[in-house]
């Protein structure tokens, strides 16, 4: 029952968010600000995670592929495909649920509790449009970019590792990357990235926007929003794989 009421309220929030901006210049400014908050703010962690993600999958793939009859090229292909299909979009967005999601939820929660949202509303501004839409739009722009970056860095991390640990030569790795490449996989990964970007921004926004109470509830809702966002991402991941693959 609670689930359905949240679900309904969530969609009402999304619907209420769509209205004409009172002043497009200010909305643009807020959008740019959010782009830098969400995009630049999580750039560092995304870089670190992607490099290690590629490196570790290189080591583990090499460990699993011991049969001498298998082509060594396959190591590069496995790294490439797991990074593109799963690691870059899903893992990165799960991390962003923590980094970006908790920030959105606590920022909006604080604004709700200290009546700043009421103050915006009372000026004759649609607070949902002003506060939530730029965040979702910025997430839709920046998160797919971060995912592409993660793909590149992940594959590069794998290349570094195979070279350093002497699993295969970097030339073999590069050759392996080019073989049996399916461009559709990148399209599929981008579909995931857009879906997850929407989830990562809108669900925490919902939990933050409707906080009731004080700082205790802000903390609680922000944790709850991260948990829910992660679960929904994994669920959406499954649905997308079932539908599009």
């Amino acid at each position: 029952m609670r689930f359905f009421s949240h679900f309904g309220k969530y969609f009402i929030m999304l619907k209420g968010m769509i209205s004409k901006p009172e002043n497009s210049k200010l909305y643009w400014k807020e959008f740019m600000h959010q782009c830098s908050e969400i995009g630049m703010g999580s750039l560092g962690i995304v870089c670190i995670i992607s490099l290690f993600m590629g490196a570790v999958s290189a080591l583990q793939t090499a460990y699993q592929i011991t049969s001498p009859i298998m082509s060594k090229l396959i190591i590069a292909q496995i790294i490439r495909d797991t990074v593109i299909l799963e690691f870059a979009p899903t893992l990165i967005c799960i991390v962003l649920a923590g980094v970006v999601g908790s920030k959105i939820a606590s920022e909006l929660g604080n604004m709700r509790v200290s009546e700043q949202i009421d103050a915006i509303e009372i000026m004759g501004i649609n607070s949902k449009t002003y506060l939530i839409m730029p965040k979702i739009a910025a997430a839709l722009v920046t998160i797919p970019m971060l995912v592409i970056l993660a793909m590149v860095l992940g594959i590069y991390g794998g290349r570094l590792t195979v070279g350093i640990s002497g699993i295969i030569s970097t030339e073999t790795y590069d050759r392996g990357l080019k073989e049996l490449f399916i461009p559709y996989n990148v399209f599929f990964a981008m579909m995931k990235a857009y879906t997850f970007a929407f989830i990562v921004s809108s669900i925490p926004a919902y939990f933050g926007y409707y906080v009731k109470g004080g700082s205790l509830e802000i903390g609680r809702n922000s944790t709850k929003s991260v948990v829910v966002t992660c679960v929904v991402i994994l669920f959406a991941d499954y649905i997308l794989a079932a539908l599009l693959l």
């Binding site: 200290s114 009546e115 700043q116 009421d118 103050a119 009372i122 004759g124 501004i125 649609n126």
Partner: peptide, 19 residues
């Protein structure tokens, strides 16, 4: 309501400044 509110000024008990 939104149009009317553009003619309203309000001071909140807790000030509600944008921090």
């Amino acid at each position: 309501k939104k149009m009317l509110r553009q003619q309203i000024g309000m001071l909140f008990q807790g000030s509600a400044l944008f921090d």
